[in-house]
Amino acid sequence: MAHIRSHLMAALAVAGILATAPAFAQSSACQEGQKILQERQSLIQQINKLSAGKKKQVDPRAACTVFSKLVVNGNAGQKWMTDNKDWCQIPDQVVEGFSKDHKRSQEIKGQACGAAAKMAEMEKRAKQQAQQAQQGGGLGGKMGGGLTGTLSVPKGAL
């Protein structure tokens, strides 16, 4: 999670650099970029809240949701930077840093969403098994009891 924070802090630095660019207030296109970066800052704060003060792991489902939004924002940010780099006087290193941050966000999104999908599948299986056990299905009955806790022992002399 420390890697995420370092990349996200780089994005915040990008937002700070872009906010101080002289041509930023001169164009509505530049103001559009500011909105994209403000949204990005908000998403980064949400990510930081997911892991703040917790010693346990971050919930992959929540991380998947926020990182999905961050990736969509990054796509818009990259397009905006490409289209308005010269007009809004965005330095090359800012564009490169944003691109690296966006790529890392995509990777983390893939990991988080993959873990969330596995969790959902495991929960689904556990629920199905619990339903089967309640209905007397599964390994119970004639197979020696299984998860029901019963075991048939033959009566009489062996």
Rank of each mutant, 00 (worst) to 15 (best):
M1E: 06
M1A: 09
M1T: 12
M1C: 10
I4S: 14
I4E: 04
R5A: 10
R5D: 13
S6W: 06
H7A: 02
A15P: 01
A15D: 02
A15V: 08
I17G: 12
L18D: 03
A19P: 06
A21E: 13
A21W: 14
P22D: 02
A23D: 15
Q26M: 05
Q26E: 13
S28Y: 13
S28G: 15
S28R: 09
A29L: 01
Q31V: 08
Q31N: 05
Q31S: 04
G33D: 07
I36V: 02
L37F: 07
E39H: 09
E39K: 06
Q41M: 13
Q41H: 02
Q41E: 07
S42N: 05
S42G: 01
I44K: 02
Q46S: 03
Q46Y: 01
Q46P: 06
S51L: 02
S51T: 06
A52Y: 08
G53Q: 09
K54I: 03
K54H: 14
K56V: 13
K56S: 15
Q57N: 13
D59T: 00
D59H: 00
D59S: 01
D59Q: 05
P60I: 15
R61H: 11
A62G: 13
C64L: 01
T65L: 12
F67G: 02
F67Q: 04
S68Q: 04
S68N: 11
K69Q: 03
L70S: 05
V71W: 01
V71A: 11
N73T: 07
A76R: 07
A76W: 14
G77W: 06
G77C: 09
K79C: 03
W80P: 00
M81V: 08
T82Q: 10
T82R: 06
T82A: 04
N84D: 07
K85A: 08
K85Q: 08
D86S: 14
W87D: 06
C88T: 02
I90G: 03
P91K: 02
P91G: 03
Q93Y: 03
Q93R: 10
Q93P: 11
V94Q: 00
V94F: 03
V94T: 05
V95K: 04
E96C: 08
G97A: 03
G97K: 04
F98Q: 05
H102E: 09
H102F: 13
R104K: 02
R104V: 10
K109A: 04
Q111T: 05
Q111Y: 14
Q111D: 14
A112T: 08
A112R: 03
C113D: 10
A116I: 06
M119A: 12
A120C: 00
M122N: 15
E123F: 07
K124P: 13
K127P: 04
K127G: 01
K127L: 11
Q129I: 07
Q129L: 10
A130F: 08
Q132T: 09
Q132D: 09
A133S: 04
G136F: 06
G137W: 13
G137N: 04
G138S: 01
L139P: 13
L139D: 12
L139F: 06
G140H: 05
M143Q: 15
G145C: 02
G145S: 09
G146N: 10
G146T: 12
G146M: 12
G146Y: 08
L147Y: 10
G149A: 05
T150W: 01
L151D: 11
L151Q: 15
S152D: 10
P154K: 15
P154A: 14
K155T: 11
K155M: 12
A157Y: 09
L158I: 11
